[in-house]
Design a protein around this nucleic acid. Structure first.
Lengths: 218, 218, 218, 218
DNA sequence: TATGAATGAGATTTCATTCAT
DNA sequence: GATGAATGAAATCTCATTCAT
């Protein structure tokens, strides 16, 4: 059992190091040797835990994304309204990417471009998150919160594309500038863009009526 | 002259082959050997034209993007209104990426993630296109077409992010499905999202007044 | 420990093979591949032990020269007189070069002409030997054993130049002829050339005088 | 004829450039391409004049050394005495090497170590110079100017070795320091070292005679 | 004669991966 | 389970050299 514990330690340590090294140098420029050194184990040990360099890469998101998705899914029932749900999800991505820069670097710069990753296990978690977002949008359309002619897939692309694009540039530019909190601004644009027009928006309309009797329109 | 012609041929042929092979396999999994074979020249010949594998990669976008950007910039003065300009640019990207799938694959899956590319010459063209888009958005804000509180950088991220995300998925999924023309839908959402509310939109407002005398609101 | 032993073995074996192959073919015409074959290891293994082909080259003299220099330096205090010290050093070079023909070939035909070698670690040993010789000469001048107007640097050049020239030709001619022991003859010329003239040179002259009538000369 | 003239020009220009480039970078690190660029001709043209890179290397000394040797040989009959002849030759080397640093760099750092050079034509001139020096020494022995037991080959090695060693170091150290005129000092040492003792030097000879009848040395 | 263009033939070097201990 | 040591398998890149024009 002490062994198990140690093993778990080593497993985690390798994943962590891989995350860091892959995140910094990119998959192809990272070497097993450096990951091993960072993790404080031998190269051979890595192969005890992971079948190949690619396996190691693919094993990373499983852990992290799963947690994030579970959190969101657990919270979902308590959030009312599609807009709020979407906002929560966007914040979920935002925080996940911001708080784990190595992770977002890895996902955005390495994993997403790997066709094989789409067949790997870790991809499931990513998919689940995306599916979750899609359903929230669809719900909004169905409930009448959003316009009927809105294409949920497009909306999802707008959301994910925007998030990824912003983080992407942040990474490419070396994470030097502070990352602005763009979530509310994005949600604002999006909401205006897809919400039903007829909605009881608070338009300020002033009508001045002549003094005579009394008639008050609603 | 015949010679010049041949040289140009070879140059183009190498670029084309590189575009294809890089696009298919990715930069790291592509080999000079395969590019040479595809182009029908020897490996050494490639090094006569390009200093290194990376140089070859970076040389690709210069040609194609430049053309597209020039076209757009030439057309700009004839387009009135920020919205129309943006729409033209988005269509520019859409057509460029759609008509040159190997190119978009290369840019989206390989080049954009390369930090060194940001220092290469070919990056200029990409930058120019992005700058052009940004200015169109800013123009819309200044002219009052868009709301004042709109952040042009965010809008640009929304636009580029969405486009890239959609093409990205298209490539990752093997370009099997026909790519929908999402431009108008995207523009619709975006326009609603950022246009000034006060604009002469045709709101249907019914006001029922009591019959009596005559009252005219100012 | 068994491992250590093996490692040491391999290290030595690579150095030996490199010495032989470099010595025979010269640095540029030697290939890592041949050295690996000679050493009975793979090419990659060589790179486990040495960072580059040049590193391997530079690693060779460190071992051998160091030993020789240490031997000489250890012996120095027991030798009286500058002339004797110099003679010992010359013999040191002579024996080193003669007993390790591959080594002398390497040093004289390859290493000495390499400007980078002057910055490498192995060069220190060579330097130490040369410095040791210089000091012996200077001592001779200071003690009055040699003439005052003698330039120690020139003398050193005469000594090293002569030794190197002779071995040089020996190697270039394919080491076919037996190498004569030129040390005493060289020392003789040199001594006559730089010793103080008035010195009470110890000529051993035996004169046998006939006691009286009949004497038998040898 | 105009053509011949041009050809000669090109030939010379190539040799000159080769001398410079080989001298600076060494044979193996020099490229035909750079020599061609320096000479202002195409690479292919070099192959019109010289069969291979090595041929070009070997063609260089023929020109220069021949001139020097002819000059010396022409002057020889007018110089009286072996010592003076030797001094003239040493000065010949000294000036040749000093005034043509690229040439001496080439000869000392590249050519001398090339076994094949010994079979090339250009080697003849070098040989002739060396033979000339040897004969001068032998003449000194025969004429009684030098001691009988002097080995002319060793003396030649001392002379050439010293000269080469000094120039060698000068080149390796980047020719930064001014090169001292070591010729007279070398000749002084050498002369003292090999001249006949019978000269009016003051030797102190002590002879101890046995006082009594019979003494037998061991 | 002169050369621009092309290439054959390697050489060094890098790593992911394996295996005996 | 852990690892030090070894290597197979390539990949990039370099140049001397050739040849059609």
């Amino acid at each position: 059992m002490g062994n198990d514990f140690k093993s778990r330690d080593k497993f985690t340590s390798i994943i962590d190091s891989a995350l860091r090294v892959f995140g910094e140098k990119g998959y192809y420029n990272a070497t097993i040797s450096e990951i091993a050194r960072t993790a404080g184990v031998s190269e051979a040990t890595i192969y005890e835990y992971f079948g190949s360099k690619e396996d190691l890469l693919f094993a990373i998101p499983g852990e992290i994304t799963s947690q994030a998705v579970e959190f969101l899914e657990g919270m979902a029932p308590y959030i009312k309204g599609a807009e709020n749900k979407i906002r929560a999800i966007v914040y979920g991505y935002y925080n996940l990417y911001k708080d784990n820069p190595d992770y977002s670097s890895l996902v955005l710069l390495n994993l997403k471009h790997n066709r094989k990753f789409m067949e790997a296990e870790g991809y499931q978690a990513v998919q689940r998150a995306a599916g979750f977002l899609l359903r929230a949008i669809e719900e909004g359309v169905k409930s009448g919160e959003f316009r009927d002619d809105v294409d949920p897939y497009l909306i999802r692309s707008v959301i994910l594309g925007t998030i990824e694009h912003i983080f992407f540039r942040w990474h490419l530019k070396g994470r030097k500038e502070e990352l602005a909190d763009f979530v509310d601004a994005l949600m604002d644009i999006l909401t205006r863009g897809i919400k039903k027009d007829g909605e009881p928006r608070a338009y300020q309309i002033n009508i001045t009526l002549p003094e005579s009797p009394a008639g008050s329109p609603p």
